[in-house]
């Protein structure tokens, strides 16, 4: 199971430097873990804990509170169909049913080829275009059954790769500024834990 790569470790350290208290960086670092591996691996979570000097159980206990974090593998494309009120009023139950049939999985399930995980989600604040869904948190609105099929075909064929990065990649914009004063000097061995921990 992978730990953070040297580059991602550097990103994590830069995040820690942004906050008055290191633990505030936990959720942003977990997003990096999920970006790297597609889900929160035990080793990835343990590494995040080492960087912040908190126990793996604390990391897991925090991660498990949040819907966006997966502690098991999911597909390359996380298809999140909203069924909350505005979408319900505009046919979301029918859309979800169609999505289940098209992908051959129930909400929570992943297709055998690992391409798609389907989930039913609460309102994703795109109600002007109900019924709507998100793929890896990129939004698609006014989705009828044919639109859904076309979307799945395009995703499977890689035609939307620029707009929809793999699951886990949330924010592709790196903070370029404001770090010089706060960031610690780069460690010699970037793969080592930030500090020794009692065993």
């Amino acid at each position: 199971m992978p730990r953070l790569t040297a580059e991602n470790l550097q990103r994590a350290r830069q995040l820690i430097a942004l906050y008055p208290q290191p633990r505030s960086a936990l959720i942003p670092i977990l997003h990096i873990v999920q970006e790297q591996d597609g889900w929160l691996t035990p080793d990835g979570m343990a590494h995040a804990g080492e960087l912040l000097d908190i126990d793996p159980a604390e990391v897991y206990g925090t991660a498990s509170f949040y819907d966006m974090f997966f502690t098991h593998p999911v597909g390359r494309h996380l298809v999140s169909v909203c069924t909350n009120l505005a979408c319900l009023l505009n046919g979301a139950d029918e859309l979800l049913e169609h999505a289940e049939a098209r992908l051959g999985v129930a909400p929570g399930g992943t297709t055998a080829d690992g391409q798609f995980t389907l989930e039913e989600v609460e309102c994703i604040a795109f109600c002007g275009a109900a019924p709507c869904l998100a793929v890896n948190w990129r939004f698609f609105g006014n989705i009828g059954n044919e639109d859904f099929d076309r979307l799945v075909d395009d995703l499977a064929a890689g035609r939307l790769a620029d707009d929809v990065p793999p699951h886990g990649t949330l924010n592709r914009v790196r903070r370029r500024v404001g770090l010089s004063a706060a960031a610690p000097a780069p460690a010699e061995d970037t793969d080592a834990p930030a500090q020794a921990r009692p065993s």
Partner: peptide, 9 residues
Amino acid sequence: LVVHPGAGA
């Protein structure tokens, strides 16, 4: 100024 991402809740 720090942009902080939530995680779904």
